[in-house]
Simulated scan of single mutants.
Amino acid sequence: MSIAPLYFAFPGRLDTLTGGYHYDRQLIRELRQLGLEVATLSLSGRFPFADDRALQEAGETLSALPDSALVIIDGLALGAFDETALAPVRAKRLRLVALCHHPLALESGLDPAQQRRFQRSEQRALQAARAVLVTSAHTRRTLITQFAVPPERVTVARPGTTRVPFARCQGQPPRLLAVASLTRRKGHDVLINALAPLQHLPWQARFVGGREFDPAWSDELQRQVNRLGLHSRIDFVGVVDETQGEFQRADLFVLPSRYEGYGMVFAEALAAGLPVVAARAGAVPDVVPESAGLLVPPDDVQALTAALHSLLAREELRRQLQAGARLAAGTLPTWSDTAACVARVIEDAALL
């Protein structure tokens, strides 16, 4: 491709171990493979709960870019921009492509004032963009209906997956795997409560994910496990550099997130051929087909207990969903597919 250099802005460190940052890293790598020159810009790690200094620094970073520069800004920062940070875009000096993994206002644990503030700031920022990238059709519909983004500006660029060997799924006892940062939106508290009545069945669970985003919540989850006598059944693993080994050693993936803009870990579970148990929330039904998993209402502990009981007590059902997951794995996009989609959007935005 013969377009001008691309700037890619994100909050904090690009090597942060979350799904959104993994998407950013893989996309940057693949765009470079396509021949694009991509320069990375690290904004304040205080986003999305940015203070005045973080917003001023973001504006200064963008102001330093050359005229007509094409810049992708990760929504974790962009969604919290104020008019000062957006000034170089408002002046039409920069060509902005927004990347929205999921709307900030839909994050769990926000108070009404925070939700309203993010709704206003994200809508303002998205409408200033020449194009908007989202990771699922669900998020596209949300931005169109709830954030007044014109449909023609929004493109779905689903996260890619890497082709991997299928997990053997022969654990004795079965190993349940949850991969997610320990935040309220991911629903670990619901999962812990759902597992408590199933102590008569053989199983072990591994919660893989960092505590740093909400340490107080992480501590409460550990206390919950201790209160319910599950400390010998649930292992808080923390952050791991490479999660593929966790997927390969698991028998079942379970994560009852309260909302997902896409849910890359569900696609990674399918890529490994794992049956999935999840909440029917956000884009999860778009990722996990009925042939590969059981979906329950969000925050429904009893329904989640019933779904887990079915899979733990009925090996034939587990094998049936395992086969469905293996079939679904073949339909998942690759990261080169994702980058090709984004490259088309970038080229169009550069010509506007």
Results as ranks from 00 to 15, higher is better:
Ala271Gly: 02
Ala271Tyr: 04
Ala271Lys: 08
Ala271Arg: 00
Ala272Tyr: 01
Ala272Leu: 06
Ala272Asp: 00
Gly273Asp: 00
Gly273Ala: 01
Gly273Ser: 01
Leu274Thr: 00
Leu274Met: 04
Leu274Gly: 11
Pro275Leu: 03
Pro275Glu: 02
Pro275Trp: 04
Val276Tyr: 02
Val276Pro: 00
Val276Arg: 01
Val276Ala: 00
Val277Ile: 07
Ala278Ser: 07
Ala278Ile: 05
Ala278Gln: 13
Ala279Asn: 06
Ala279Ser: 13
Ala279Asp: 03
Ala279Gly: 08
Arg280Pro: 11
Arg280Glu: 12
Arg280Cys: 14
Arg280Tyr: 09
Arg280Val: 11
Arg280Ala: 15
Ala281Phe: 10
Ala281Asp: 09
Ala281Gln: 14
Gly282Ile: 15
Gly282His: 15
Gly282Asn: 12
Gly282Asp: 05
Ala283Asp: 14
Ala283Phe: 05
Ala283Pro: 14
Ala283Leu: 13
Val284Ile: 14
Val284Asp: 14
Val284Met: 15
Pro285Met: 05
Pro285His: 05
Pro285Glu: 01
Asp286Ser: 12
Asp286Cys: 03
Asp286Lys: 12
Asp286Glu: 15
Val287His: 06
Val287Ile: 07
Val288Thr: 02
Val288Asn: 06
Pro289Met: 03
Pro289Cys: 09
Pro289Arg: 06
Pro289Gly: 01
Pro289Ile: 02
Pro289Trp: 09
Glu290Asp: 12
Glu290Asn: 15
Glu290His: 14
Glu290Ile: 12
Glu290Val: 10
Glu290Ala: 13
Ser291Gly: 08
Ser291Phe: 04
Ser291Met: 10
Ser291Trp: 03
Ala292Ser: 11
Ala292Lys: 01
Gly293Cys: 07
Gly293Thr: 04
Gly293Ala: 09
Gly293Phe: 04
Leu294Arg: 10
Leu294Glu: 08
Leu295Ala: 09
Leu295Ser: 05
Leu295Pro: 01
Val296Asn: 00
Val296Gln: 01
Val296Asp: 04
Pro297Asp: 11
Pro297Tyr: 06
Pro298Met: 04
Pro298Cys: 13
Pro298Tyr: 10
Pro298Ser: 14
Pro298Asn: 05
Asp299Cys: 04
Asp299Val: 10
Asp299Gln: 07
Asp300Ser: 12
Asp300Val: 05
Asp300Trp: 15
Asp300Thr: 09
Val301Thr: 10
Val301Phe: 11
Val301Ile: 07
Val301Lys: 14
Ala303Phe: 13
Ala303Met: 11
Ala303Trp: 12
Ala303His: 12
Ala303Gly: 13
Leu304Pro: 11
Leu304Arg: 09
Leu304Met: 07
Leu304Lys: 09
Thr305Val: 07
Thr305Pro: 10
Thr305Gly: 04
Thr305Arg: 00
Ala306Ile: 02
Ala306Asp: 01
Ala306Lys: 10
Ala306Thr: 09
Ala306Trp: 12
Ala307Cys: 08
Ala307Pro: 02
Ala307Glu: 02
Ala307His: 03
